[in-house]
């Protein structure tokens, strides 16, 4: 038991990763930030549309798509992976729609059935063809952000942009950001009031499928780093924390990005200290940030609520006395 938690060494945990080991941990933190930023931005809209658990479904469902893409193309290049993931994501949405429109099984159960089936198939394929795929079943669950290859470096016009996986993830994150900027109005109004959106001539169905496709791409890009389950935390935690602190959508987006940055940096330190999975440590750090916001948010935190409750009580308590 004592050997479980390694001795705490402030220098190794807080200083070393950002100084002498920056070339390793810097990229890990940057990768974590890119993943959490892309996921967080998409996740904000999922939550606004009460579809947070579609993230759950899609993240589990891309696995068989990835495995089949590996097996067919024989490589882990980006193109086949995206195609496989999009196909699997589409298959998942199709199965869910089919089950819940054609039968009396409700949507929540339909989601549960679809993603578990696809994920189970993916795991079976992964194990059965273990020799041909360099994915192991556990990595599928929680990824391995520390083993994401740092080679080759991508350079553009003399500038070193970073290791290839990071550049790919960052490009996805930037892409998501640009899409939100371009379609901000449409996304906002169709999430808030689909009826009004329709009457304004915006097609909510088109936006819905666009969002699902974006989700699939984000999830598959993040898969290698954080796996199928932790990605759900990456989708939900930044926005949840942000919405504890503000009631404006643009600020929710900005705070999500801040949460992504903080949780990846703190996660690296936590992972080094505890010597555990780096991606899981980032999620735990992000959850601690959420817990802090939940407790201490000035407007809706637990402490503020308790304080207001107490003040109201102390104001109201003399009242019966006055009556008498």
């Amino acid at each position: 038991m004592t050997s479980l938690i390694p001795p705490y060494d402030a220098h190794a945990v807080w200083v070393a990763p950002w100084t002498e080991q920056l070339s390793l941990y810097g990229w890990i933190a940057a990768m974590g930030f890119a993943v959490a930023a892309a996921c967080g931005l998409v996740g904000n809209y999922l939550m606004l549309r009460r579809m947070a658990l579609m993230g759950d479904a899609v993240s589990h469902s891309v696995l068989p798509g990835l495995v089949v893409a590996f097996l067919v193309s024989g490589s882990r290049s980006t193109g086949p992976m995206f195609v496989g993931a999009l196909a699997a994501g589409a298959a998942a949405t199709l199965i869910i729609e089919t089950i819940h429109t054609r039968t009396r099984v409700k949507q929540d159960a339909a989601i549960g059935i679809a993603f578990s089936t696809l994920f189970a198939l993916g795991v079976i394929l992964t194990v059965a063809f273990a020799g041909q795929i360099d994915l192991d079943a556990e990595c599928v669950l929680y990824g391995e952000i520390s083993f994401v290859p740092l080679e080759p470096m991508v350079t553009l016009g003399g500038w070193t942009l970073g290791p290839e996986p990071f550049v790919r993830m960052a490009a996805v994150a930037v892409g998501v950001g640009v899409m939100i900027l371009v379609w901000y109005k449409e996304l906002l109004v169709s999430s808030f009031d689909p009826g009004l959106a329709r009457s304004l001539g915006i097609n909510p169905a088109l936006l819905h499928y666009g969002l699902m496709a974006t989700l699939s791409i984000v999830v598959v890009s993040a898969f290698e780093a954080v796996g199928a389950i932790l990605v759900i935390a990456m989708l939900i935690l930044p926005g949840s924390t942000a919405s504890m602190l503000t009631t404006r959508l643009p600020k929710v987006h900005l705070l999500s990005l801040l949460h992504a940055a903080l949780s990846s940096v703190l996660g690296v330190s936590l992972g080094i200290w505890l010597n555990c999975s780096m991606a899981a440590a980032m999620v735990v750090a992000g959850a601690v940030l959420f817990g802090l916001a939940w407790l201490a948010s000035p407007s809706q935190g637990l402490v503020a609520r308790w304080w207001h409750g107490r003040r109201r009580e102390s104001v109201e308590q003399p009242a019966p006395g006055v009556g008498v």
Partner: peptide, 27 residues
């Protein structure tokens, strides 16, 4: 122009009164 029933939207949505009124201009 359209005024839906009040229950048809999520009033916890992170927007201000001004943002909602501006949605009327989006079309």
């Amino acid at each position: 122009g359209y005024v839906p029933q009040r229950e048809s939207v999520d009033w916890d949505f992170p927007v201000s009164v001004m943002d909602v009124v501006l949605m009327g201009r989006y079309g």
